[in-house]
Design a protein around this nucleic acid. Structure first.
Length: 891
RNA sequence: GGGCGAUUAGCUCAGUUGGUUAGAGCGUCAUGCUUACACCGUGAAUGUCGGCGGUUCGAAUCCGUCAUCGCCCACCA
């Protein structure tokens, strides 16, 4: 066996194994009727994207599930791919072209521009897919798809036509959210509201008859050019005599009517409100009720149009400024109020959105939502954590029509064709998967919302609408791992699409990951510069370290506070594991009982039984945790199992066995091998690289084979029936050893100096156990004792022993351990220790007595609990008398 | 306005259906012989479980309420 370095160095090892896995097609899943299917579809990252720490968490969890199920012998397939991300990609490439070539999409024109986006995609797109490999994700790369691949585009067209023919898709002039940056409509979900400091401008609108003016307040002065009425509250005595009259709209030559409408709230401001039907959703409704004119005052880029007279061409904010100044000059500005209000921003463009009237395509969602609600309500689809179902239901139960058209070029062009004049509202329309026959048809310019292809992902990625074996075998998928921020965008819509187009749910479980923040709790963002680069982290700490750390620190359903330093935890853990194996290799060649323990059960030492028992319990717990998506719990269990049980106690307990006899050494090594191989397999889904490397180094896995397909440990080892009892005794032994070490340290006795210990276990059973040769030998070795005297002592025995001067005692839950140290003992220190102990015990006793004296407790608490307290009290009293006896000796 | 979540050791967080005087990692302090590991070992210290009230024999845990922080939805001329 080659010499292992003292520290684990992940770099080359990770490269080596990933290449080997990939070239060995080990990630490939294929329909296999002999096996149980297990599948996940990746939430497709934007093709422009680069790996973030959020992706790391999300994909690590998916990979853990995938590797776990693969090791359980299932036919596993993780479908990867990327999303064309319409607006994001279009603006990204547009920006690149401006910066590098001084051209942009408008100067290039539609076809040329799209060509350039494809070029860009080929060259730079999918960076994130390459980066994911560094993480160790075992996606089936042979099945990588892109939402604009031909097959997936065909799925989009088919779905569009189907919904259109069903009457679910329609085109109409509606109020939509408009992003002036993208110059496109947006869905409601793409608008994010932010609280901003704004102003409330109170304007005077003079009555046409010269009898005064009405005061209206607005946060958007620049839209006044689109005002077509002033509304007053219904039946408001202040204004009812004015209804039907008109006001002169300042800065224009128009006169607009005063109307009564429920929208005007008498308690707000003056109660009068200006109505701009083409630029506000509420005003739009008012406009429809009163048959008002809809005047659009803005261009698509957010500048003012020709309706605005001398303000035409100004940017909306500049126009606002000038409007206010002009009104002020005219003496029509009554006052300015500071307010804090919510303003909608474009999620992608980051600019304030406009609500305006335009022709768009919509999907009626009401019917689609029904089975989606039902599936989650009846538990066919489960959410983890479950509380997200509330968000889900709330949205679906109040669902609005989905605006699916976008006025950009990069995306799926809407499969609708027109014939006739562009401005003719009654021109001929044809919707179909391919262009219609005949002359004069021209295609709709708009493309579809990106999510209109993403919502088909779980089956379009498997070849739908073609009938493929993949769909038969892998659909529905099993688990979805994604962020709660896309419940509406993606999760809910996928569920709707699954039922509508496949007649079946798309996945059974949805695990929502936590949001990652920096260690100060701030959101990660490029502008704050607090967004770590996972590739650098991988370089510094290793992919396994990053994976393990992030799972370890990710609390269930809460935000994660992440910083790169936290990866030390994973790195140190990997190093610990590495060294445990290194230690083993230094003891000689690996035995052949790593797969099946070749030692008869009755020959196992108590420490060995304990270790095997802990492994059994851990395997059980970890499988259970994973099946409940408790990744964090599983990671903690593994950490403790490896570090605490295996390294700190079991390896240390083996060392004495090595010296005892050749037979006991070989036996210990056999158990070590068995345990190590199990540990590596348990850890593999979390830390794929190091476990593969070690499995090969140790000879558990042959060349050309992989730990990836080794069986995931289940509880399968027949242990002695009393294994749990033995474990309990061993743990008590460890407590006494800890107490003994403490005794050494508090008395400043060098660890190298051999000394004699007297052990007073708490029970007869433990006494008998510790008196065996096996155990006295083991304790002696672990405490570096010259002798161990195990006594099942009554307090008076203790007094006798303690009668000699210079006794130091250390208590623990398993009993007491003491040593005669003569003048080495500082009586004052001992006395203080004892007094503290006595005080502690008295406190406990008082608590117990109080309970038992409480008639209500004795009467109401379960007998078991009452008995427990009684037993505890007896135990405590005994301990107390021993402790008091020790103090007397010291006085 | 409606909803959701959080508040436990200096920091980050566990804490299953209520049942000993609440745990871990990091950090801190002390120490370091030995057959893996200083990315380590050994040992130690550390808490009014956000406040108040209630239910209960018993509350970090259940209920109410308040406070603080965060998120989502709706709405704000």
């Amino acid at each position: 066996m080659s010499e292992m370095p003292k520290a684990y160095l992940p770099g080359d090892i990770e490269e080596k194994w990933y290449a080997e896995w990939e070239s060995g097609k080990r990630f490939h899943g294929t329909p296999n009727p002999d096996k149980k299917p297990y599948s996940i579809v990746i939430p497709p990252p934007n093709v422009t994207g680069i790996l973030t720490i959020g992706h790391v968490l999300n994909n690590t969890l998916q990979d853990i599930l995938i590797r776990w199920h693969r090791m359980k012998g299932e036919e596993v397939c993780w479908f990867p791919g990327t999303d064309h991300a319409g607006i994001a990609t279009e603006s990204k490439v547009d920006k690149v072209l401006r910066e590098t070539e001084g051209v942009n999409r408008r100067t290039l024109g539609r076809e040329k521009f799209i060509e350039r986006v494809w070029d860009w995609k080929k060259q730079y797109g999918g960076t994130i897919i390459r980066q994911l490999r560094k993480l160790g994700t075992s996606c089936d790369w042979d099945r990588e798809r892109f939402t604009m691949d031909e097959g997936l585009s065909a799925a989009v067209r088919k779905v569009f036509v189907q919904l259109y023919n069903k009457g679910y898709i329609y085109r109409g002039k509606r109020m939509v959210n408009w992003c002036p940056a993208a110059q496109s409509a947006l869905s409601d979900e793409e608008v994010i509201y932010k609280e901003v400091n704004g102003k409330f401008w109170h304007f005077r609108y003079p009555l046409t008859d010269g009898s005064g003016y009405l005061v209206v307040a607005t946060t958007r002065p620049e839209t006044m050019f689109g005002d077509t009425a002033v509304a007053v509250p219904i039946g408001d005595p202040r204004y009812s005599h004015l209804v039907g009259k008109t006001v002169n709209l300042p800065l224009t030559d128009r006169q607009i009517p005063i109307i009564e409408d429920e929208h005007a709230d008498p308690t707000k401001g003056t109660g009068c409100v200006k109505i701009t039907p083409a630029h506000d959703p509420n005003d739009y409704q008012v406009g429809k009720r009163h048959n008002l004119e809809f005047i659009n005052v803005m261009n698509r880029d957010g500048s003012m149009n020709s309706v605005c007279g001398k303000f035409a061409g100004l940017d909306r904010y500049e126009c606002r400024k000038q409007c206010v100044a002009e009104m002020d000059k005219l003496g029509l500005l009554e006052k300015i109020e500071d307010i804090v209000h919510n303003v909608g921003f474009s999620e992608r463009g980051g600019v304030e959105i406009e609500t305006l009237l335009s022709d768009q395509w919509f999907v009626k969602m009401g019917e689609l939502a029904k089975p989606a609600i039902e599936a989650v309500r009846n538990g066919d689809i489960k959410f983890y954590p479950e509380r997200w179902t509330k968000t889900y239901f709330h949205w679906l139960e109040n669902i609005q029509d989905w605006c699916i058209s976008r006025q950009i070029w990069w995306g799926h062009r809407i499969p609708a064709w027109y014939r006739g004049d562009v401005n003719d509202e009654n021109r001929e329309v044809y919707v179909g998967e391919t262009a219609p026959e005949g002359e004069g048809w021209y295609q709709e310019e708009d493309v579809l919302d990106t999510w209109f292809s993403s919502w088909l992902w779980p089956f379009s990625i498997m070849g739908w609408p073609e009938d493929t074996p993949e769909q038969k075998f892998f659909y529905p998928t099993d688990d979805l791992v994604t962020g709660p921020d896309i419940i509406f965008f993606w999760v809910a819509r996928m569920i709707m699409a699954g039922f509508e187009f496949k007649g079946q749910l798309p996945f059974r479980n949805v695990y929502f990951t936590s949001i990652i923040r920096d260690d100060l709790g701030r959101k990660l963002s490029k502008s704050l510069g607090n967004s770590p680069d996972p590739l650098k982290v991988i370089e510094q700490y290793g992919a396994d370290a990053l994976r393990f750390s992030i799972v370890y620190i990710a609390p269930v359903g809460m935000d994660i506070r992440y910083s790169n330093e936290k990866c030390e935890l994973g790195r140190n853990f990997a190093n610990k594991l590495w060294n445990a194996c290194r230690f083993r290799t230094m003891q000689g060649p690996v035995s052949d009982s790593f797969n099946k323990l070749a030692i008869p059960l009755d020959k196992l030492t108590a420490d060995e039984i304990h270790m095997l028992n802990m492994l059994e319990h851990a395997a059980d717990d970890i499988n259970k945790s994973l099946s409940e998506f408790k990744f964090h719990t599983a990671a903690h269990d593994l950490y403790e199992l490896v570090w605490n049980n295996f390294c700190d106690w079991f390896i240390e307990s083996c060392k004495p066995s090595f010296n005892k006899s050749e037979e006991s050494k070989q036996q210990a090594l056999a158990v070590l091998d068995y345990a190590l191989w199990k540990l590596l397999r348990l850890l593999h889904p979390f830390m794929p690289f190091i476990t593969e490397e070690l499995a090969h180094l140790m000879g558990f896995v042959k060349d050309g084979d992989s730990i990836m397909t080794a069986a995931y440990p289940q509880t399968d080892l027949a242990l002695p029936a009393n294994a749990d009892t033995v474990s309990g005794l061993v743990m008590k032994k460890y407590m006494l050893i800890t107490a003994g070490r403490n005794l050494r340290l508090t008395n400043n006795i060098a660890p190298g100096k051999k000394m004699e210990f007297h052990v007073y276990p708490v029970s007869q059973e433990l006494t008998d156990f510790l008196r065996t040769d096996e155990q006295t030998y083991s304790i002696s070795a672990m405490l570096n004792a010259s002798n161990i005297l195990v006594k099942f002592g009554k307090p008076e025995d203790m007094k006798q022993t303690a009668a000699a001067a210079g006794i130091s005692v250390q208590y623990c839950d398993a009993g007491a351990i003491l040593a005669e140290l003569k003048d080495l003992v500082d009586p004052e220190v001992e006395k203080a220790k004892m007094e503290k102990r006595v005080a502690e015990l008295k406190g406990w006793i008082k608590g117990c007595e109080a309970k038992l004296n409480n008639q209500n407790f004795v009467a109401h608490a379960p007998a078991q609990v009452v008995e427990g307290v009684r037993a505890q009290l007896t135990d405590l009293q005994e301990k107390l008398s021993r402790a008091e006896a020790s103090i007397k000796v010291l006085q």
